[in-house]
């Protein structure tokens, strides 16, 4: 039983077909990442799944009563618009002070209520957007390049937060990204996109697939190797990543 699925979906902008014959599904509690280079249509796919962009062909199914929390790619808050974090959380549905506080604590932004949105740093804003998406207790979180503009530590801690949220709330996560290594670490399944689905599978399977290598070139190998190295090191320190999807793989590496 999947939460959300697309069957043979095509999206066209005028005469240009930006997405061709996309079929995918997201199961409860899983973290799926759509990975692709710039212009591969990954944001468009997410927006089509959300119903923002109309679909030319194919169909999409949602589990009845599924609540989706959406974190957009970026939020350009006009300096002319005064709005505090607390007020923002009450858009478009007003929420109680208690739920607002809980959501901010959840993303590690407690006490930020009275900050103006336009004064937040990129990382803080992403967390506030996530807090807002969590207020509705969604069964599925959809994130569009959530770490764009964050530095590497910021990026890593944001993906850790996503995993925590999945563990604590059981929400599935479907996100879009063009950055490779950290995403690989945080996903159960990766869908490689370039106008169509090139390949799909666990991060390990995808990273060795010829389609993936063709799409991202050799440069990624270094990054992935770096990631593995870090992870091995982490592992040797005796940290136990109980919910980490790669746990078993790395056990094999050691053996």
């Amino acid at each position: 039983m999947s939460l959300l699925s697309a069957e043979h979906v095509c999206v066209r902008y005028g005469d240009v077909e930006v997405l061709h014959d996309i079929s995918l599904s997201v199961a409860p509690g899983e973290i799926v990442t759509i990975l692709g280079p710039n212009g591969s249509g990954k944001s468009t796919l997410l927006r089509a799944l959300l119903g923002i962009v109309p679909v030319a062909e194919g169909r999409m199914l949602r589990q009845a009563g599924l609540r989706i929390g959406y974190v957009p790619q970026k939020l350009a808050v006009e300096r002319t618009m005064p709005i505090t974090v607390r007020r923002f959380l009450s858009l478009p549905v007003r929420v109680s002070d208690r739920s607002a506080k809980e959501a901010l604590v959840r993303v590690g932004m407690e006490g930020l209520d009275d900050q103006e949105l336009s004064d937040l740093s990129g990382g803080q804003l992403q967390r506030v957007l996530l807090a807002r998406a969590l207020l509705d207790q969604p069964g599925l979180l959809m994130l569009d390049e959530p770490t764009q503009g964050l530095d590497q530590p910021g990026e890593a801690s944001f993906y850790r937060l996503i995993e925590e949220v999945r563990r604590d709330t059981g929400a599935a996560v479907l996100m879009v990204s063009h950055d490779l290594h950290v995403v690989m670490a945080a996903s159960d399944r990766v869908i490689c996109l370039n106008g169509h689905i090139c390949c799909e599978g666990t991060p390990r399977v995808v990273s060795t697939a010829p389609e993936y290598r063709a799409l991202f070139g050799l440069g990624t190998q270094g990054a992935l190797a770096l990631y593995r190295h870090e992870h091995d090191h982490d592992h040797a320190d005796g940290h136990h990543h109980q919910d980490h999807p790669h746990h078993h793989h790395h056990d094999h590496d050691h053996a």
Binding site: G51, I52, Y70, P72, L75, I83, L91, P92
Partner: peptide, 13 residues
């Protein structure tokens, strides 16, 4: 207010 902040957020809601 929602649509003014972000049309995408509004759409999704």
């Amino acid at each position: 207010l929602t649509a003014t902040l972000s049309e995408d957020l509004a759409h999704a809601a």
